[in-house]
Write a protein that binds this DNA or RNA. Sequence first.
DNA 1: ACTGGCACTCGTTCCCAGGGAGTGCCAGTG
DNA 2: CACTGGCACTCCCTGGGAACGAGTGCCAGT
Lengths: 340, 340
Amino acid sequence: MSLDDRKLDVLRAIVEDYVATREPVGSKALVERHHLAVSPATVRNDMAVLEDEGYIRQPHTSAGRVPTDRGYRLFVDKLSRVKPLSPAERRAIERFLIGAVDLDDVVHRTVRLLAQLTRQVAVVQYPSLARSAVRHLELVPISTTRLLVVMITDTGRVEQRIAELPGPISGDDVTQLRQMVNEKLGGRRLTDTPPMVQALVDEAGHGLRAAMTSLATVLLETLVERAEERIALAGTANLTRGGILDFQGSLRPILEALEEEVILLKLFSEVEGSTLRVRIGDENEIEDLRSTSVVSTGYGPGATVVGGLGVLGPTRMDYPGTIATVRAVARYVGDLLAQN
Amino acid sequence: MSLDDRKLDVLRAIVEDYVATREPVGSKALVERHHLAVSPATVRNDMAVLEDEGYIRQPHTSAGRVPTDRGYRLFVDKLSRVKPLSPAERRAIERFLIGAVDLDDVVHRTVRLLAQLTRQVAVVQYPSLARSAVRHLELVPISTTRLLVVMITDTGRVEQRIAELPGPISGDDVTQLRQMVNEKLGGRRLTDTPPMVQALVDEAGHGLRAAMTSLATVLLETLVERAEERIALAGTANLTRGGILDFQGSLRPILEALEEEVILLKLFSEVEGSTLRVRIGDENEIEDLRSTSVVSTGYGPGATVVGGLGVLGPTRMDYPGTIATVRAVARYVGDLLAQN
DNA sequence: ACTGGCACTCGTTCCCAGGGAGTGCCAGTG
DNA sequence: CACTGGCACTCCCTGGGAACGAGTGCCAGT
């Protein structure tokens, strides 16, 4: 059975009121606050239907109604109007992001900005190595048998590893190695490098063969295969706003999940295009986050996506506002990256 | 008036019991659990004295006693025996730290290890730039008028900034600049570089003068003057162990303080030598951390100190265990850094 | 100097009644 | 037929006692 317009209006009103007051909302208060042209009794009938359909529920008999995850879902999909950012917010975003000196700085500022604007927990994934290309590879000798390998990507990330060489190596050899790897790998996407690295070993003169092999191992293993994804987090303090009531039970499992990078990365694992995604309560694959909602999106220069960002909060969340903010921040960050 | 031995024993017993049970401890339970050779009444008299002296207090009349910050202080200074690490813990530390691929990895593993072993919030400061020396400076052209400046320090930190040049520059010029800066700055402590940087500008041929000036500005401003200190954090979930009871009021201010890097850095600002420091409750300069205790120490290769690490928890904390763990982890990390 | 005994305090728990918010249902109305 | 007003009912929340018990301070006795 499909719901008529008034029932949808009632659902919207319930969601909005509950989000604003965090208290179960009753029929009488509803008609007053929203100037509905019907009586409380009528609204009660509508509520009964909405409850049958699973969009709202009663914490206990003789209490008001509270939206269910399903109710929020319908609200997000059909009922919420886009809430444009206030000029103040736009200015906040711009002010916050200019003056960032490097990638770390950009990411840190972004995550704090997001946390502040949405008053929720914010998560920003560093530009993924898998989606980056090599800009430059630098080899710095630390001793005669150890090289510091520094890779700089086009997204601004800098990764470093130590390569242990089988035998001592001269400065000239290092120069030659540097030239070879940059020639072959410079400009390539990281995912395309494995065959190139193999070629490098094959082409190396026998004087350099051993050193190049060690170097290749480091490059492959640590920069490509086990490419480390990084995450920045802010606003955990926002979880405690309004008591622990928002999350049934304790904050413990949520805080624990937030410290597991692996778990956080999952949030962004399926970012495709720059589509914004909202996961409400039970829709989360991650057990410990079933009592929260996650709003996430991809970001990157222009239309390409190099990483994800988003916020996490109670299912009782201001979806229109949060969605608008997340989208706006992602776009600003993308623009910022495009400038480099 | 000085306290006799038995009174000190009573204080120690109170601290130990309260830490173990988190409940005010009464005179009767005390004699039983600790096999004191006196009667509860006697212990009560001792308690009355300890309370007069401000080492313990009663949450309310007719409740047991709870240590005050002052009581914990006396306990830490005089009454607690060093608790050696268990072999299992030693093994955990070793296992955790081998296999770290780079500095980021070391720091992350360390902070998680600390949080796990102490079951508290752990904080690790990255090796401070102020205490590091330049190992290598790399200049990577991004466009004809922009250079990516990458500094690698002897502590393994890699910092990057973008320098905008006043005019286009050739590849040969970049090579020359690179050589000049490395010759002059390589191996120097960062704090010693400012005069050197000035000298570089003075010595630059007039063809390179303009570019070198821009470069010098970036080096001075962002790498030395506004040298960014970094911090890693883990175990915030441990704050919620045992309800919020441990911290009077809410977790909010504590979580907020933990997100302020500036505040965290203060914790380590006065690390001198590798002396371990314990700040109990009110002893903390930071307002929001007055209900917590902080155990911190410096770490670094050999006897030098390059940064700080520590843990933060309720004043009701297992001080001997925590102190032993923090000290041990700091030493292991120092050894690890010494190997590079 | 220590102990046993005792009166006292005060937080905690449990119960119970009253108030209030909100509901479901039903008969009535345009 | 959809909506409304009225009404009985449910159930949470609050507040006031009363009973309980842990723990204390004090005092007289050894």
